[in-house]
Design a binder for these strands. Structure first.
Lengths: 228, 228
DNA sequence: ATGCCATGTAAAGGTTCTGCAAAGGACCAT
DNA sequence: ATGGTCCTTTGCAGAACCTTTACATGGCAT
């Protein structure tokens, strides 16, 4: 099966060069020349990985990445001028999977893309369904709603994100740093109690069983308790 | 707890520099100065990610990687002299997750490690339960729990780490300095009785058989007794 | 036996982490 | 503006935990 790459790059010449090379390497390529189109394509069309230039005419690439990360975990490789160390570090912190300096060797680009896709393929065994059940909870991902015994929970956007992440990893411990990154889209800084508050509120809304559904794993994070 | 990095690098100075930096960044660091030790430690599976130099005195790093890949999907980041493009491409093809040219910026190394770990942590939600048995003990890595006859032991984070290390080396002696480094993530200093206390508490929680499950090897360390 | 050193463990000490209420601030619609 | 909703910050209290201290025990060499 062919992997689908989305190429977001404003330099037409470079973009077409890469597109041609990637096609030759067995990728299906989609292209966008600016951040707005790129974002739309990434969110709409189905693709497996995104190659994203940081310098774009409209929205900054990092901004595109941040927006993308708030909604999906689609793998993203950043592309930018060599030597810009700040962008590089920030890029990783925002959630990039890799970073390649321009001008880049196409072979290396392909190698890196495939390394990431390989990792994703290994670990990601099942597709996420539009609807999933966890005990008496049911989550409808396209409506961004969660039902408890068929009654919709009145959650805020952030609470939904957090609970969604916890449910996706139900039974496993989700570290605070990861939860922060995945649900809130930013790094966990020292003394930041935001997460604790959201958890506290979530617990309230989930009702009081004998033992809390969201368990605290001290020094690590939280985990949604699986029934049975 | 912390992420565990295995550093395989023959240059003592560089290795210690990186080790110190990574420790400071919240990683638990294990070190190996050659390919053979590195492979053994990596397969002993007490780490989350490996940083592997390609130029090693004994086995070539790529060979180590190939051997590793034949048995596990443990994330590996290659480290090598800048400009060696062939190695780089080959490295990816053999299954590396990333490649960093030396001399490397420690901050970038950390950023890349975390990008990979983030992706792995996210994708592993679908992974089949990692579960291992040692007599009547069963350890579930993603829940971070240890069960004794199907009853969860109420362990603290540190106790879990210690028991996990002991179990992984069940039957052989783990030196106190190593146990300290691997489970507590710091060096064993003189007059530090912390480890002894944790062992004492662990023994209590493991219940009293006729002979202790965690055996003391005087002057050396501890070892988890294998049944039969 | 004697002394030294490693170990076992109870209890105390101190640190870090967490829960939560309340207040502050940002944003949006009216 | 005004009010409402939501996210974040602040502060405190309590809990959980790790480490230290102190003393008892036991092995080992001389």
């Amino acid at each position: 099966m062919q992997n689908r790459v989305l190429l977001v790059e404003d330099d037409d010449e470079l973009r077409e060069l890469l597109a041609r090379y990637l096609s030759g390497q067995g990728f299906t390529v989609r292209e966008a020349a600016n951040g707005k189109d790129g974002l739309a394509l990434a969110l709409g069309q189905h693709c497996d990985i995104v190659v994203l230039d940081i310098m774009l005419p409209d929205i900054n690439g990092l901004e595109v990445l941040r927006e993308l990360r708030s909604q999906t975990h689609l793998p993203v490789v950043l592309l930018t001028a060599r030597g810009d160390e700040t962008d590089r570090i920030v890029g990783f912190e925002v959630g990039a999977d890799d970073y390649i300096p321009k001008p880049c060797n196409p072979r290396e680009l392909v190698a890196r893309l495939q390394a990431i896709l390989r990792r994703v393929a290994w670990d990601q065994k099942t597709e996420v369904k539009a609807e999933q059940r966890y005990g008496d909870l049911r989550i409808e991902t396209n409506h961004r709603r969660i039902y408890q015994n068929d009654e919709a929970l009145d959650l805020t956007a952030t609470e939904y994100e957090i609970l969604q992440v916890l449910l996706a990893h139900a039974g496993s411990v989700v570290r605070k740093t990861d939860l922060m990154q995945w649900a809130l889209g930013r790094r966990l800084e020292a003394f930041d109690r935001t997460l604790d508050m959201h958890i506290s509120n979530l617990r309230k809304k989930l009702g009081s069983d004998d033992s809390p559904r969201i368990e605290t794993v001290r020094g690590l994070g939280y985990s949604y308790r699986v029934s049975e």
